[in-house]
Nucleic acid binder design. Structure first.
Lengths: 328, 328
DNA sequence: CTGAAAGCGCTTACAG
DNA sequence: CTGAAAGCGCTTACAG
């Protein structure tokens, strides 16, 4: 910038005014001289220096609990679009369901002076969440609710998602429904709520619930869990896969067991997968409005950044939708 | 930092030494005092300030041409792992096959003072690429070769990928092979090379080539292109989908036309897709070694960053592998 | 073993 | 309409 100033025969201040498009009082010839000095020198401003001075990086951090879920990538995409429209940049990190990693990334992003943070919380860093909340740092939770700390949260009406699935199955005459979901170690609220919804919907639909057929295990153990379900005296005639990773395991099991869908086993999943319409049979699933959810989270965080972290700390619940296919 | 220094009764310099773990000459009591001052105040260093002074952000930028390709996400993942191991951060941007966007992102990342850039080039910004090359800015190209500017490039042996596919099909007795690939507007080298390989392999296998069955169109137009292929007097008995997006369109077409695989039509794709083993029939495909390719790109860029951009400007070609399934 | 001082590349009141 | 000066929060030779 000093070079540009010298070349144009003005001061750094004036160059800075030019760069920030404050032309109110700038002479036309000054402006032109700066303009040509910049292009001659191929000058590019240093955002790092500007950020230091302005104490704002125009950057939002996003930490997803697990990038392998299609839900995460879809939401990131929506957040990205919104931020892009509002001239904010994004740094995305993947905590891999690991609270240690989540902690590391939160600290890294704070050190990098992001203006705000959207977190899909693992739930394992209550102190950190609280510290940010107390420090009035702009923060939004996505997908999972953390009871211990009041932060605006965007998530699905998870009980309703399970209810949609069970009611649909019941309507088709299925009554022996199993459920497969990823591990409950961290007790992430969506999984807990989906299981609760599953149970409640059994009552509402007059179905008898088999507790043993609700399996919450790590992905590696899913084939075993499914085999268990099918080894008993009575077998499920339908399965709810509570997210995309579970669904893939169910489909793998169906294929390997030589079962046919939906005759031998009806299958329904929560989350949209790329191959739902391509599969034979096409898959019935419960879609989350990932696009709106992502935009909502982005809009809350950007409002907070701009308005000094004011605004309500609400939980925003979005309604799931059943997309019918041939798998049940 | 000034607060910490005051609280500990030392100077900022000493705090800085502490933070940078230069303990060689530091008194044990000084160290302890700084340590407790930091934890009392909950001090977090400001990386932006450090970056400004050190002229290094420990950050690598990645610009993919199109994030929708599974290849891109797999490579990003590998780059991320490698950078993480070497304490570099990543900022990922998606140019959406749009040279304008690519330009914007390159300039943004340079302004953010990333230490190096891995680009899946659209090919539409030759001046910018040259400028970076001349400025000795650490730069690596991924996937696509740009003849006009000599930059280290990591990519697949694309001709071999097509050859593997065609030779496999020929071995199974198929001789009327069509090819579907995404648009050639930008003439990205992998698509050109895959088409060349497809043609050459026809010669090598003594097959007669139907030029009209090589379709390079935008994804929206693929169903139409496939219908054209199948509307003529003779029809293909096999299709090579040159990437994952093309493959999905082929599978959609097969399903909608009521064709059965591989009896009516054999299908083979380049790129690994998540549902290859899940599909009925399971899919035969040509895999790229995305993991090694990503790590290679990351290792080149980090070497360049550390060694002041020395090193050769080679093209690294990786060999594809055929993963057999039931679709051909 | 520790501190004073300069400087990284910007922005921004303020003076003229 | 433009410039001199201070300051953002660090690091780093250098002096002592």
């Amino acid at each position: 910038m000093a070079d540009v100033a010298r070349q144009a025969g003005v001061s750094k201040s004036t160059v800075s005014q030019y760069l920030n498009k404050r032309f109110d009082y700038m002479g036309a010839k000054t402006k032109a001289r700066i303009e040509s000095a910049i292009s001659e020198l191929g000058y590019q401003p240093n955002i790092v220096a500007r950020s230091l001075k302005q104490k704002s990086t125009q950057t939002i951090g996003v930490i997803v609990a697990n990038i392998l879920h299609s839900f995460s990538t879809q939401v990131i995409r929506a957040i990205e679009d919104y931020c892009h429209e509002h001239d904010f940049h994004l740094i995305v990190c993947n905590a891999d369901d690991n609270p240690e990693k989540e902690k590391k990334y939160i600290e890294m992003l704070l050190a990098k002076q992001v203006d705000g943070l959207i977190v899909f919380p693992t739930g394992g860093n209550l102190d950190l969440y609280k510290k940010m909340k107390e420090g009035e740092f702009p923060l939004v939770f996505m997908d999972r609710i953390i009871d211990e700390v009041e932060v605006p949260t965007v998530q699905l009406n998870n009980e309703r998602a399970s209810d949609l699935a069970v009611t649909h199955l019941a309507g088709k005459g299925y009554s022996n429904i199993g459920m497969l979901t990823t591990s409950l170690k961290q007790k992430p609220s969506p999984r807990v709520e989906r299981i609760n919804g599953f149970k409640q919907s059994h009552k509402d639909n007059g179905l008898s619930l088999k507790e043993g057929w609700i399996k919450s295990v790590d992905v590696e153990d899913m084939q075993g869990a499914l085999r268990e379900m099918f080894n008993g005296p009575s077998k499920p005639d339908a399965i709810l896969a509570s997210n995309d990773l579970s669904l893939i395991e169910v489909l793998k099991f169906v294929k390997e067991s030589g079962l046919s869908m939906p005759e031998d086993l009806a299958v329904i999943g929560i989350d949209r997968v790329s191959f739902a319409d391509l599969y034979s049979p096409t898959l019935t699933y419960i879609a989350q409005p990932t696009f709106e959810m992502g935009r909502k989270a982005a809009s809350i965080i950007i409002d907070k950044v701009k308005n000094n972290n004011t605004g309500d700390e609400m939980v925003y619940r979005y309604e799931p939708e059943l997309i019918p296919g041939e798998s049940c």
